[in-house]
Nucleic acid binder design. Structure first.
Lengths: 355, 355
DNA sequence: CCGGTTTGCTAAACCGGTTTGCCAGATCCA
DNA sequence: TGGATCTGGCAAACCGGTTTAGCAAACCGG
């Protein structure tokens, strides 16, 4: 009898109201092209039928989706509880909402980022943490979608937003050197998909270069054995520090490439019955919100995480609007050291050691 | 001369390969319907042209988007750095990825949720924290999109995922009563859009009912003056506790409706030169990851946040697949109290007071 | 050698809207 | 009164794919 309720379409409204499809479309999109009575009559009929324009069909004709994609090489389940991504997404969301754009998260589909990006109906993409080494970077580039890279190995032909990783790292190391430290441990973030080597152009590579530059200027060489890497999480930091300790390292200062790992390192140090900063100083990187509230408060390299998200959106939208991809813009945001409570002078012992 | 590169469409490939559009479509979607040579030839041509099927057009004909929407009454910029949402989104993302679905976040567009939902190209929606009082709830319901409600006032005609708020709250209060507390302060989460009254059916209302039930069973009446509300953030918790203190309240136990607020309350208590739990005990709600790592570790009501996200997705997908909306399912997940370090016996003083 | 099946491909309809080009009638002005 | 302009609305083309119905040639068994 009564067939299943089909979603009403524009033709149904047109028939019911005794007008053309064009008129219905006008009633919704440019009512000034219709007489007032006709427009309202159409809207009334549409309302009574429960009609609303099908968003996909609308996208198809307008050739825009009013959506921007956020592309991460990791699975989504990994990033949402990462406080760094949280803050970054906040910035992205803030700017996107301001311009009336929605947010679509794109993660590898059945292991393929390129396939996922092909499925996604977005006007442009913000790719975060995409390294040159990624096997699909070429396919992604050729997807024909405007892309802004964030914290990615800069492809010169794509616009990007980055921070001064090297400068920030240098500042962190300089601070510790100034306090008298000579024995360092670096805790780095694991390269994506556990690539064989640390990409010298990746975030880890750049920060490492900054650390080494500062130490070298003080006549200290940082051997590869003093660099341990792990996943960028609290647990990763705990594990990394324990590993270093088990290997016999006894640094007085730890340079961590993320706050989460720094917090983990502090926890591990406490587990070793040592004190921060009395026995070991720790410097983080990122300055996530939590860094103020750790015990002791974390000395760290600040980067404007939220603003990074906002800038990425603005950059992307300017490309989408102008279609101008000649001369891609590369924005570099500043970093600065924030000295809090997790750093201090090295204990007396090491001073003798150094002498 | 060379016109701007238009995105190649299926007709271009067809012409170039000397076949029909149908054949090209087959080459991508059901190659077995073509001879092997033809199929590969088409794919080669498509590749050389840089063709990939337009996702929006594909959506239109297939009548599915392979995307699910996450709907929040708050602006997106608010939720991403909220650790509760982080964990929830993790669960959602995990299940969505498993089934090959993408994630689209929907927040009020120019202040209107209904408008935002109308623009979004999703197969279904997970609405979180949508209370009956929301002015647009009717329009949203009539949008004709499958909806699963989470932590929302249950509309009986929509499937939902909830937790046992009342039972969890009761357990929290019972725990404190068992320790000997008689003087309580409840810190509640502010209703959305600062509605005039606390919705008795909302999360805040349900938890409050649990607290009151337990206290009443012990012969204690919790007056409205002992309930303060604020935004569900650390800062909100700090402010709420200070406000109560300024009003002259001197509770020995604080029942907070979110871990973030509980953490804020602990911070505020410390600012008052008091100790947790020696002077004041604090119980949170949610059991976010951070709760293990506070100082002292937070006693709190655990709820399976990630699983809530997963269940919501599964429920939604089952509706999308079957189109069966008769007899909507309501899943209720369990809560349980986790006793950590932020609760203890009340100090001696108050015992005399009560006597 | 002939009717029936299989193989390989295509033309046309369709998804649900928007937009262009045009027409009929009303209004205006000289 | 007659041509120009304006108003309100429509038919048809279009966005870029998928899918149905069907056709022609090849194949098959008897």
């Amino acid at each position: 009898m009564d067939q299943i309720a089909r979603r009403p379409r524009i033709a149904d409204v047109a028939r019911e109201a005794g007008v053309s499809k064009t008129a219905v479309s006008f009633a919704f999109n440019s009512p000034e092209r219709l007489s007032a009575e006709t427009a309202t009559r159409i809207r009334v009929v549409a309302d009574s039928l429960g009609y609303r324009p099908h968003p996909v069909a609308r996208m198809l004709t307008q050739r825009q989706t009013l959506t921007i994609g956020v592309l991460t090489p990791q699975a989504l389940a990994v990033i949402f509880s990462n406080p760094f991504f949280g803050a970054f997404n906040e910035g992205v969301a803030l700017a996107a909402e301001e311009f009336g754009y929605g947010l679509h998260f794109i993660s590898p589909l059945h292991g393929s980022l390129a396939r996922a990006i092909g499925r996604a109906t977005v006007d442009g993409v913000i790719a975060v943490g995409l390294s040159e080494g990624h096997p699909e970077v070429d396919q992604i580039r050729r997807a024909g979608v405007p892309i802004v890279l964030v914290d990615s190995t800069a492809l010169p032909d794509h616009p990007s937003v980055e921070i001064d990783d090297e400068g920030g790292a240098r500042a962190a190391a300089d601070h510790l050197l100034g306090l008298g430290h000579r024995d360092f441990l670096v805790i780095g973030v694991e390269p994506p998909q556990s690539a064989t080597q640390v990409d010298p152009e990746g975030v880890t590579g750049r920060r490492l270069r900054g650390y080494r530059a500062a130490l070298a200027a003080a006549g200290i060489e940082l051997g590869d054995d003093r660099v341990v890497v792990g996943p960028a999480s609290v647990e990763g930091g705990v594990a990394a520090l324990h590993r270093a300790w088990d290997d016999g390292l006894r640094p007085t200062a730890v340079l961590a490439m993320s706050d989460a790992m720094a917090i983990g390192a502090m926890r591990a140090i406490r587990e070793l019955r040592l004190a921060v900063p009395a026995d070991v100083s720790v410097v983080g990187f990122d300055d996530i919100d939590l860094a103020t509230h750790t015990d002791p408060p974390l000395t760290t390299v600040h980067q404007p995480i939220r603003r990074k998200g906002e800038e990425a959106v603005r950059l992307l939208l300017s490309i989408i609007d102008t279609h101008d991809v000649t001369k891609p813009e590369h924005r570099r945001l500043e970093t600065r050291l924030i000295v809090r409570g997790s750093t201090g002078h090295p204990p007396i012992g090491p001073v003798f050691r150094t002498a």
